[in-house]
Amino acid sequence: MRCPWPALRLAKAMRALPPGATARLLADDPAAPREVAALAAEHGWQVHDDGTGELLVNG
């Protein structure tokens, strides 16, 4: 999927998770880390990007 879809789906998943939960996002769109980081900053989530295309987001 191309951005912004990974970020939008992540936002939906994070709303369904309890506070403090972690979501794992696999994305191969080069824009995904930027989009997810911006979304996380808006919501106060923490993002860990290990550079493999897997992003861990803590809410």
Score class of each variant (00 low, 15 high):
E35S: 15
G44H: 15
A41G: 15
T52R: 09
W5P: 01
A21M: 03
G59C: 06
A31Q: 08
A7E: 09
G51C: 13
P33S: 08
E35P: 02
W45Q: 09
A37M: 04
P4E: 06
A23Q: 02
G20V: 03
P18G: 11
A21Q: 05
A21W: 06
E42V: 12
E42R: 14
V47M: 10
G59F: 00
A21E: 10
T52K: 11
L17T: 05
P6W: 12
R34E: 10
N58H: 12
L10V: 04
R9G: 11
G53V: 09
V57N: 00
P19W: 09
K12C: 07
R15E: 11
A23Y: 01
A7W: 01
W5A: 15
R2L: 13
H43F: 12
Q46E: 13
D49E: 11
A13P: 01
A41D: 08
G53I: 07
C3P: 07
A11Q: 04
L56K: 10
E42S: 15
A32G: 09
M1V: 09
A11R: 05
A38I: 06
P18S: 07
E54G: 04
M14L: 15
L26I: 11
E54S: 10
K12M: 07
G53K: 08
V57I: 15
L26D: 09
G59V: 00
A38V: 10
D49N: 14
P18F: 02
L8I: 04
A40R: 00
R24F: 11
L8K: 05
A16L: 14
A21C: 06
H43K: 14
L25W: 09
V57Q: 00
V36K: 00
E54I: 06
R2N: 07
G53T: 05
A16E: 13
G59R: 03
E42T: 11
T22Y: 06
V36E: 00
V36G: 00
P19F: 15
A41N: 11
R2I: 05
R34A: 15
T52I: 03
G51Q: 13
L17G: 08
C3G: 08
E35R: 02
E35W: 03
A31I: 04
L55I: 02
W45R: 01
P6Q: 07
E54C: 12
E54T: 07
V36P: 00
Q46G: 15
N58L: 08
L56Q: 10
P19M: 14
L39H: 07
T52S: 15
A16I: 02
H48S: 13
A16H: 08
L10Y: 01
A23M: 02
L56N: 04
G20T: 03
R34V: 04
L8N: 10
L56M: 09
H48T: 14
